[in-house]
Design a protein around this nucleic acid. Structure first.
Length: 259
DNA sequence: GGAAATGATTTGGG
DNA sequence: CCCAAATCATTTCC
């Protein structure tokens, strides 16, 4: 019913996917804006584990059910010597057994669903895998922010430029400015120091080049001496060993973290 | 270990 | 869409 559909939708039940668990070796980290590729393979690996356990258990139940059924059949056959037993009665017995076992399977399915839900919330919520930006990125963003304090709203192009220089996404730049604005406003008194600090830094670093905001937002501004915007992001997230323990003995042992 | 800092998301308004 | 504000979850610093 619902649970089945959900499990199929999540890829736990249903058609077997290719090589199964160990077939998530995706080593193509697109240079551009590829941000949701690596986390996905990790997610799938864990999902594969869940699927494996699920099928294992399912099979076990199936087997147990069959064994129990034949056992009961034997008992009935034995009894048939002392009293007449109709085929209908046997069939009813079998049905009762199957019903019982299917309810047990239901439990398995439900706890599997729960496990998937937990997994989803663990991996799909980016808040849980937050990483601080690099020092340089913060520098760049702060520079812009305090240089344009009167209007700290970078246009789309400016955001893109900042994103490139910081090796982060445009969305992250937007987030950063959203956070920065609100948090700057919250305590202006204290942040003022920071403003001065960055203003001074600016003046010292650039000498006579007031690219504040009046003129064109030239995309060719020369960065300060210590630029180096390559540096390939900020490394792979360590992915602390979550080890969620589901209701029914699901336990994803902390796997070796590498791609 | 707890507080502060910080990045990301949700909510609500335009 | 973008933004502000509130909130969440994690990292960093003490």
């Amino acid at each position: 019913m619902r649970l089945d559909n959900m499990l199929i939708a999540e890829g736990v039940a249903g058609p077997e996917k290719g090589g199964g668990v160990g077939a998530a070796a995706n080593a193509s980290a697109a240079a551009g804006a590829g941000d949701s590729a690596i986390e996905h393979s990790d997610y799938r690996a864990k999902l594969g584990q869940i699927r494996q356990i699920y099928h294992q258990e399912l099979e076990k139940y199936e087997q147990a059910c069959n064994e129990f059924t034949t056992h009961v059949m034997n008992l009935l056959r034995e009894q048939s010597r002392t009293r007449p037993i109709t085929p209908k009665e046997i069939e009813r017995m079998v049905q009762i057994i199957h019903k019982k076992f299917s309810s047990i399977q239901m439990q398995l399915k439900q706890s599997t669903c729960e496990a998937v839900m937990i997994l989803r919330s663990r991996f799909l919520d980016a808040r849980r895998r937050r990483r601080n930006f690099s020092k340089q990125a913060s520098e760049i963003l702060n520079e812009y922010f305090y240089s344009n304090l009167s209007n700290p709203y970078p246009s789309e192009e400016e955001k893109e430029a900042l994103a490139r220089r910081c090796s982060i996404t445009v969305n992250q730049v937007s987030n950063w400015f959203g956070n920065k604005r609100i948090r700057y406003k919250k305590n202006i008194g204290k942040a003022q120091e920071e403003a001065n600090l960055y203003a001074a830094k600016k003046a010292a670093g650039e000498g006579a080049s007031p690219y504040s905001m009046s003129g064109t937002p030239g995309p060719m501004m020369s960065p300060p001496p210590g630029d180096e915007s390559s540096m390939g992001g900020y490394g792979m997230p360590g992915m602390n060993g979550s080890g969620y323990s589901g209701a029914l003995g699901y336990d994803l042992h902390p796997e070796s973290p590498d791609v």
